[in-house]
Design a protein around this nucleic acid. Structure first.
Lengths: 211, 211
DNA sequence: CGGCCTTTCCACCTTTCGGACGATGCGGCG
DNA sequence: CGCCGCATCGTCCGAAAGGTGGAAAGGCCG
């Protein structure tokens, strides 16, 4: 019997996952939670499971912004509690997937996956195998081919502000550097992304999920 | 007994909605579908329901792009089949909400709404009442207050290209007008949105879901 | 240690944008 | 009919952004 923990901030989705899991003869839901903190608290308090299903987007919409992201939670669960994490999320942007995989997620599925695929993935995850959905694999490959992610931390920071619509001057003031530096970073960004302008860089960044 | 039809392309979410509905003593699921075409075919083929729960985002992720959007489906169901539609979707951008409300949706809920709220909304919708989730109401108000959507069709077209990273020159060539015209539109856009630059306008446009 | 990358900055120059005018023609509306 | 909003073009000018070509300081790694 596979013990499954559900961690998703959408009650409806949680109910759906529960329905799928309960519909399988060889698995059951042992805990259900809507926040990452809850999940870690339960695991820290003696709870144990064979696999954790979690949504990468925790507290994304509400005004009480990100307290604990899904990626961090994944890392903690995998490393501290030695429990495989199967990430089940709605929108699989490249950045999300990469973050999850880097955090040590055992699998990554989109919510529009059929229920049989989900059940199969849970069994694989419980067995310790790494499984990525077909969609996800395609996206990962596409990402690898594209010349992405060479950006340094600073450059990414600049890019984020550019995408937010700030001017070079505003960015310079915000980062406590000179305008020349911002322009320099931006020049590198444009080179690395193969773009011609700040706006195009912002568009490409969004497309690739680097926001 | 309230007869409910589920229309959502995510099997997991569908299972969740079914679990919620089946958990209520006064309602039941009479049909379940993953595409808008299916939904319309079922209704057209003699099926009837007291309320339709549907996801605005149909066929959004896959490569086989949008065939029939949730908004169009909503309009058809409401007007042709005189059946109330309760939109239940993940991300409630202003544009989505507006589209749904304009299409005649009876209600609009985010998927992170608690199950009781969902059940209440279904009852209200079946009774013909218009109900918007608390989150949604807040967003709509915020939208109304903000000086948005005064943009003309042409301006919006320009804005879209700007957000895609095109230069004025490229936009001019793409729209078969002169650069002066593009600049003129952009000037109006910046005035209407209260922005200072193309990049900022693009950022604001994304934030407000005008993409 | 000597490259290599990152981050910071500079100067000079060209291109692009944005603001501030104005002008035309078109279509709707009272 | 005049007025207004929209779309289309124009000019002039200053500001912002981007390209080129540097340079210096610090970190990392073989």
């Amino acid at each position: 019997m596979i013990d499954v923990v559900l961690a998703d901030d959408h009650p409806v989705v949680r109910a759906g996952l529960r329905a799928v899991v309960d519909g399988q003869p060889d698995m059951r839901v042992v805990h259900e939670t809507g926040t990452a903190e809850d999940l870690l608290a339960w695991l820290g308090g003696g709870g144990r499971a064979d696999v954790v299903l979690l949504d990468l987007r925790f507290g994304d919409a509400g005004p009480g912004r990100s307290r604990l992201g899904g990626a961090e939670a994944t890392g903690t669960v995998v490393h501290r509690h030695a429990t495989p994490v199967l990430v089940v999320t709605t929108y699989g942007t490249d950045a999300d997937i990469l973050a999850a995989v880097e955090a040590g997620a055992t699998g990554y599925l989109l919510k529009d996956a059929p229920t049989e695929e989900l059940a199969r993935a849970i069994r694989s995850a419980a067995a310790g195998e790494v499984i990525l959905g077909a969609d996800v694999q395609r996206r990962l490959l596409g990402r690898m081919r594209s010349p992405g992610e060479n950006l340094s931390a600073r450059e990414l920071e600049v890019l984020r502000l550019v995408a937010a619509g700030r001017s070079n001057d505003a960015i310079a003031r915000e980062l406590f550097v000179s305008v020349a530096t911002v322009k320099s970073h931006l020049a590198h960004i444009n080179t690395k992304l193969g773009t011609q302008s700040r706006t195009e860089a912002a568009a490409v960044a969004r497309e690739r999920g680097m926001l």
